[in-house]
């Protein structure tokens, strides 16, 4: 256990965290703003990766391929949105159906389970071979996205999505087409996930049909970890752009923690188990805290205490 192996690995975790941070910001839009647990993510990440890699290998300019990865993600979100709003399929199930369908579609796009792409042969936007450059570009992309989303959710259109997510009855009473705003939020969210997939495939040098497996859990982990740290550090001053920034930071923290536990001896095959435990713990802690302050057992204890005191004084 050489501490230097860990230190040397950390920049890679930061780079990876930034790319997954884009996905996490997409998850934030559905999970936090729209209040929709969207499992499409596990499929649309791979779709973004597959589209980007196949296009680049076939000679399409890298920036255009990245845009296409974004659009492919949007399309996936559109499908989930229509399944939910037009056909009345519950949100979670709609996401699962799209995700499952995308597994086949991703295989169709690539024609195989894994397509490699070599940074020496193609002018890739980012790569794990050039980590400092990847981090720089990652920070710029995340900052730009936060700026654009900050603007978007401050517009009349953005307002309709926020209102739909919080109180759809009120939204309809204000003349908002809640089905439309649900679909738009899902499109936007999965577009970002597709973009993250396109960048991730370039970073790791391949697109894999399994690259999205468990992505939603990592995205949720980033959202939740980011929220906890954001509220801890900024407290009341945590505004919308701060929340988005901390979501990306949450993803970075997540990958650093994973790196640390791998260094401590966790085998790579157990990282998904670890992810699930991290998310469960972060979700459970606030609940248990609240419950312990407000429990029947505590009430019973206090009540018993009072009776004893009273009984004591009477006896005295």
């Amino acid at each position: 256990m050489n501490i230097m192996t860990l230190v040397n690995a950390l920049p890679g975790s930061v780079a990876q965290g930034l790319i997954w941070g884009i996905l996490a910001i997409g998850v934030y839009i559905t999970y936090k703003i729209l209040d929709f647990a969207d499992l499409t993510v596990d499929g649309s990440l791979g779709t973004g990766g597959a589209v980007a890699v196949v296009l680049i290998v076939n000679g399409v300019p890298v920036p255009l391929a990245i845009v296409c990865a974004f659009l492919a993600g949007c399309l996936a979100g559109l499908v989930t949105g229509l399944l939910n709003t037009l056909l009345g399929i519950p949100g979670i199930l709609a996401g699962i159906l799209t995700q499952l369908a995308l597994y086949s579609i991703n295989l169709d796009i690539m024609g195989q389970a894994n397509t490699a792409i070599n940074v020496d042969k193609y002018p890739l936007f980012m790569s794990l071979r050039f980590i400092p450059m990847t981090i720089l570009k990652g920070v710029i992309v995340v900052a730009l996205l936060i700026a654009v989303l900050y603007w978007f959710f401050g517009t009349e259109y953005g307002f309709t999505i926020r209102a739909t997510g919080c109180n759809s009855n009120m939204a309809r009473a204000q003349g908002i087409n809640t089905k439309k705003s649900t679909v738009i939020a899902l499109i936007l969210s999965n577009g970002l996930v597709g973009l993250a997939g396109g960048l991730l495939a370039q970073y790791q040098g391949n697109a894999d049909v399994n690259m999205g497996r468990g992505a939603i859990v990592i995205g949720l982990a980033a959202v939740i970890i980011g929220e906890v740290f954001g509220e801890l550090i900024l407290g009341k001053h945590l505004n919308f752009s701060g929340r988005l920034a901390f979501t990306a930071i949450g993803a970075i923290i997540y990958f650093i923690v994973i790196q640390i536990v791998l260094w401590l001896g966790l085998s790579t095959q157990n990282t998904k188990l670890f992810s699930a435990i991290v998310v469960a713990v972060f979700l459970a802690v606030p609940y248990i805290k609240r419950a312990s302050k407000n429990s029947f057992r505590a009430a019973a204890k206090k009540s018993a205490g009072n009776v004893n005191e009273k009984g004591g004084s009477e006896n005295a």
Partner: peptide, 10 residues
């Protein structure tokens, strides 16, 4: 209410 909403500030 009742107006179409755009990308102007909310």
């Amino acid at each position: 209410r009742g107006q179409s909403r755009s990308l102007k500030w909310g």
